[in-house]
Design a protein around this nucleic acid. Structure first.
Lengths: 112, 112
DNA sequence: CAACAAGGTTTCCATTGGTTACCGCATAAT
DNA sequence: ATTATGCGGTAACCAATGGAAACCTTGTTG
């Protein structure tokens, strides 16, 4: 005989805050890109050095996606040769708070 | 002329706490599975109802992965027909803290 | 007896991610 | 003068991941 448990899942049925936020930071290396922009604007090649395993293709794709999602801004600087700077929007900075929590768990895991 | 900026990325070069933790919760729907186990053990079919868009295949794969990573435990109950219960380990509960931060940002996004 | 539930597995296909090579433009080195 | 290098990407190609639908085994129910 199979005992039944109440379906006590306490989340709203139609909209899930977790998926809601995860959708914004989804995509390979997205969290890392946001994280490395937290201290101020950075350029394409700087980000590529910050995150050594990322390829140009993927970095390029993420920067475009995160721009479309309103997480960061792309600014072309009028230098010669022109350089491109990426910086977090306000939304981006809100995400950093969540990433901070993940980083803290990451440190715990390392020390354990 | 191109102004140079110091490479001020403040993370350790060899090990990244962010990727470290992200690796544990990676995989489609992993965060949701962990989240829905935070209140106590749940069974396969309950989780499937908690997360309607997930398929059996992916749920099955995630539960196996998260078990191998030490995030949750699988327990077969001696009922008829046998049922299977999944519950978070201590590590799993640590991850819930990080997910909580993500959920909070998710709520902010909704209200904005 | 036929139907259904639990806890998955199998098959098949679309999307994503990763690797390598390359481009156009500009300065820097030899 | 020629070559190399840095910048900010794109193109072509292949491997791994994710999703939909059907199916399976053991057992209970009507």
């Amino acid at each position: 005989m199979l005992k039944r448990r109440k379906n006590l899942s306490p989340e709203a049925p139609e909209f899930c805050a977790l998926s809601n936020c995860m959708a914004v930071i989804s995509g390979a290396w997205s969290p890392n890109v946001i994280w490395h922009l937290r201290g101020g604007p950075r350029r394409f090649s700087e980000l590529k050095q910050d995150i050594p395993p990322i390829s140009s293709k993927i970095l390029s794709a993420r920067l475009k996606e995160l721009g479309e999602r309103g997480v960061l801004l792309r600014r072309v600087c009028d230098t010669s040769p022109p350089s491109v700077e990426y910086s977090l929007t306000e939304l981006g900075h809100e995400l950093v708070v969540a990433l901070q929590a993940i980083v803290e768990v990451g440190h715990k895991l390392k020390s354990r």
